[in-house]
Structure formats: structure tokens, C-alpha cells
């Protein structure tokens, strides 16, 4: 069981809460308390809009333990409107082929079980194509 680890990250996972640098206004996700742009301390919380575009993507057919029930699924690098790139699954895809540059939006979805179906359900951000 990894309850504490998932619990600690819930704000980031559920609603893309990152940070903004008070010195240079750089938006930071995942939060790291030190601005990667100017190197100063950056602990001010910032909730991202969840809007972005596909920077790269691929499909996973053979999933690692814990994700097999959802395979095949698509993972992507998503460039958020506010700047950062994050790694996330794309969900709700239909026959429309994914392409680099497609606009996407954040949704909160089930990621996996912590352990098996007796464990907690881990929820977090995924992205779907924006219409």
C-alpha cells in the first residue's frame, strides 16, 4: 500500500495545482519549490487551467503492473498553456487519430488501484481532445 504517497499529492493529481514564481512569474508543474527559470524560491500555489496541446504521444499495448486492465492506452507529453510540459494519459479517444499540436483539456480520472481491487482507487489528471 502506498496510501501516504498518493494522498500527499492529491491536489496536484486532482486539479493540477502547481506553483508560480513570485520573482519571474514562471509557472511550475510539478511543484518543486525552487524556480527552474530563475533559481529563486517559489512556493506560491498556482492552479493550472488544464488547457494545453499534444507535444508528443505514443500508445502502450503492454502495460506495467497496475495498468493492465486499461491497456491499450495512449500517453502523451502535454504542453500546458501556461508553459510547462507534463506527462499524462490521453483518454476518451475515438477513431480520430491523435496528432502533435492537437488541443487537449485536463480531466480527473481513475489512474489505477493501489495494489488490487481491495486497495484505494488512485485518481489523477488525464487529458482529452478539446473540441
Amino acid at each position: 500500500m502506498e496510501i501516504p504517497r498518493h494522498w500527499r499529492l492529491k491536489q496536484q493529481r486532482y486539479s493540477l495545482v502547481g506553483e508560480v514564481c513570485p520573482h519571474c512569474d514562471h509557472k511550475i508543474f510539478p511543484p518543486r519549490d525552487i524556480c527552474p527559470n530563475c533559481g529563486d524560491e517559489a512556493k506560491e500555489l498556482f492552479t493550472f487551467s488544464g488547457k494545453g496541446e499534444v507535444y508528443s504521444y505514443t500508445k502502450i499495448y503492454e502495460a506495467p503492473t497496475g495498468f493492465d486492465a486499461n491497456a491499450p492506452y495512449t500517453v502523451a507529453l502535454v504542453k500546458l498553456e501556461e508553459g510547462p510540459i507534463i506527462t499524462a494519459q490521453l483518454t476518451d479517444l475515438d477513431s480520430t487519430p491523435v496528432e502533435i499540436g492537437m488541443p487537449v483539456e485536463m480531466v480527473t480520472r481513475k489512474m489505477r488501484n493501489d495494489g488490487d481491487e481491495r486497495g484505494i482507487i488512485v485518481y489523477g489528471y488525464k487529458f482529452r481532445l478539446r473540441t
Partner: peptide, 13 residues
């Protein structure tokens, strides 16, 4: 609902 959806995710949206 899709494989990654349930009443919690749907309620959030």
C-alpha cells in the same frame, strides 16, 4: 462510462 470513469470522476466534471 469509460474504463477510467466512475461516479467520483463524473461528479468532479
Amino acid at each position: 462510462p469509460g474504463l477510467d470513469e466512475d461516479v467520483i470522476t463524473m461528479s468532479i466534471e
